[in-house]
């Protein structure tokens, strides 16, 4: 594999051809928020939080879907990028009903985390306050649409890792919603194997174990690499001793 060199935030770095910008950036120990992308799932470029400035183009490019190329020069935390990230997070908080104080993920939520890290302490936009249901028909899990940010990690993991394709998205625009089967209650879904993968990868309190109470839900992502490596390389190596996946 060919080695490439490029500059990230004015530092010269080297990486491997074919790597995504995101991987390369993270290898340098630089934190970049990613709410839709998750290592092991197909990059989608939906949340726009990982946008970076690339010198050769006037467009901002998402690090998760862009391949690193020889000679690229990028900025990851310019004033403009940070401002936009903050605005995007505000938009997400305004879109649905996030009341952290009573949420199962309070304290461990990726959305909340990113907002805290960037210092987002208020929302300047109208809360859209949509009326959305909570579906608790499944034996083990619940889906609370009020907390969903439409990252579609659940759709992706259920399709590409579990292979069930129980989830998909219905409608479009701000009226989109994740659905199981024919927009039926999750509990009656015949395709769901109750594997729980979707719950584990969900960045927010939208998907949770049934019965979790406020701030109780813990999620792990490490199974993803475990399964994918097992599938591709026939190697099963548990990282971080198999404890909590994130961080």
């Amino acid at each position: 594999m060919a080695v490439i060199t490029m500059t990230i935030n004015d530092e010269l770095v080297s990486g491997v051809e074919g790597q995504s910008l995101l991987t390369l950036i993270r290898e340098q120990g630089i934190e970049l928020p990613t709410l839709c992308h998750l290592e092991g799932l197909e990059a989608r470029g939906g949340c726009r939080l990982c946008l970076v400035e690339v010198q050769s183009t006037h467009r901002l490019l998402p690090a998760c879907t862009t391949t690193a190329q020889e000679g690229m020069a990028i900025q990851t935390h310019s004033e403009r990028l940070v401002r936009y990230r903050r605005m995007i997070l505000e938009l997400l908080f305004a879109e649905r009903n996030h009341v952290c104080a009573v949420c199962v993920m309070n304290g461990r939520c990726e959305l909340q985390d990113e907002a805290a890290k960037i210092g987002m302490d208020h929302v300047r936009y109208d809360y859209l306050v949509p009326e959305l249901p909570l579906d608790a028909s499944h034996d083990k899990f619940i889906i609370d649409h009020n907390r969903c940010i439409l990252c579609t990690r659940c759709v992706s993991v259920c399709d590409s890792v579990e292979g069930a394709h129980t989830w998909d998205v219905m409608g479009r625009g701000v009226n989109s919603r994740v659905i199981t089967d024919l927009n039926q209650p999750w509990g009656v879904s015949r395709s769901c194997t109750s594997c729980g993968k979707c719950v584990q990868v969900c960045p927010t309190g939208a998907l949770a174990n049934k019965g979790s109470t406020v701030a109780e839900m813990v999620k792990r992502h490490d199974f993803l690499q475990w399964i994918l490596d097992g599938r591709e390389k026939k190697q099963w190596v548990m990282q971080n001793g198999g404890s909590e996946g994130r961080r």
Binding site: D159, A164, H165, T166, W167, D168, V169, M170, G171, R172, I179, T180, D181, L182, N183, S191
Partner: peptide, 12 residues
């Protein structure tokens, strides 16, 4: 095709 896929397309 999966049901949710068909429903997703029909409502898009």
């Amino acid at each position: 095709l999966p049901l949710s896929w068909v429903y997703g397309v029909a409502t898009f």
